[in-house]
Amino acid sequence: MGHLFNRNILLGVSGGIAAYKSAELIRQLQELGANVRVVMTRGAQEFITPLTLQALSGNPVHTELLDAEAEQGMGHIELARWADLLLIAPATADLIARLAAGRADDLLTTAALATAAPLLLAPAMNQQMWRDPATDANISQLEQRGVSLIGPASGEQACGDIGPGRMEQPDIIARAAADMFETGALQGKRVVITAGPTREALDPVRYISNHSSGKMGYALAEAAAAAGARTTLVSGPVNITPPERVEVVNVTSARDMLDACESRLEECDIFIACAAVADYRPADVQEQKIKKGPDDMSLTLVKNPDIVASIAASEHAVFTVGFAAETQQVLEYARGKLERKGLDMIVANDVSSQGIGFNSDENEVTVLWPGGEVAMPRARKSTVAAGIIAQIAMRQDP
């Protein structure tokens, strides 16, 4: 799947009962990183208010073609230029017919003619209207012009009929919108990413580990694959379904992870060290389970190899990205690691902040490189991952 990080989505809402789903669709698009503006037809305003969609999108909702306040009366041109994608959901039979005819009799159809952005329709109508030859001809004509469709789904409709014509669910539409932007920014690149925790054995039963869930690393792997990279994910023990189009290498300890990374170094252009690697391991691993004994027990630890520093110092030229999960002085410590370990880039996040970091679905990070930095606001880890991959694509050697 592609991503919508900093993409401008112009959402058109036409007049059908499925218009209520546009509220959830806005949220889904924003969670994927999109900037959303909304255009509503007059019919749409009978089903859901502009105020609702304005509150959700954070932007004024546009409803009138002739608006003297909007860019000196040329608001449709401004919107058309702003959009990276025009997504119309729901797209009623009437709206589809007007688009097929090239009509420009309201703001939405005028913007559709005026934009160079791709057009994605999510049809919604009665099952018989969907099956009608006129609708079929209109859809065929639009597809021949390069217009894309998502749906419709089949099922029970508001009128009581059962059949095709239901608007697809907002999450499916949002994913389809994201798929319109498979950028290929890392096309042909080979990326190795580490993820999850490592486990350092004490005996056959116990081990030393940490709270990393692996979610951030897995999101990065999915984003790298979506950007066209041949992606290998070297993963510690996690409970996450592997991303599609990604090779997964399962490891346990820090030394296992280093061996797996070094064995793939000759075929690696970009290395992203996202795993939470244990800094130390027990000096001696007991062959049998350690039995309960005195109230006190001493444990001798030795330092684990520094995986990201080892990769950065290798003779093979690799664009190396580290992670700095800190609880205090986050940017200061991250900048120090960037310089000390000879990294090309580092991603800093405050794991002491509630709701982000380990085990959470969201994150908030700052990406730093020699001479610059960019902050990424709190968002789902998939959105943050897409932003990180975009930064890497802009700064790594061609």
Rank of each mutant, 00 (worst) to 15 (best):
A114Q: 04
E315S: 15
L343M: 09
S154D: 13
E24S: 14
V351R: 11
L186P: 14
V351D: 09
I290N: 09
V251R: 09
I48N: 10
V321S: 12
A83F: 05
G73I: 00
S209I: 03
A195Q: 11
Q286Y: 11
T366Y: 01
G342Q: 09
D269S: 02
S263D: 10
V285L: 06
R335D: 14
T327S: 14
E46P: 02
Q354E: 15
R166Q: 10
S148V: 01
T366C: 09
R255L: 08
E46F: 02
D106I: 01
G165S: 09
N349H: 07
E24Q: 14
R81A: 06
N210F: 08
C274I: 00
R98M: 03
L301V: 02
A114G: 03
P377G: 01
D179C: 14
Q141K: 15
A83Q: 04
L10M: 09
L343N: 12
K21I: 02
M167F: 05
I173R: 11
T320L: 12
R145Y: 03
S353A: 15
L258V: 03
A334N: 12
S360N: 13
K303F: 01
T109I: 00
A325L: 12
A224I: 05
M345S: 13
T52K: 11
Q141W: 00
D259F: 00
G43L: 07
S360I: 00
L10V: 05
C274Y: 00
P398D: 13
I240D: 08
K381T: 01
G342V: 05
S352N: 10
A227V: 02
A23W: 06
Q157V: 03
Q329S: 15
A219T: 06
L149T: 02
I9Q: 01
P243V: 03
A393D: 02
I307C: 10
Q157R: 11
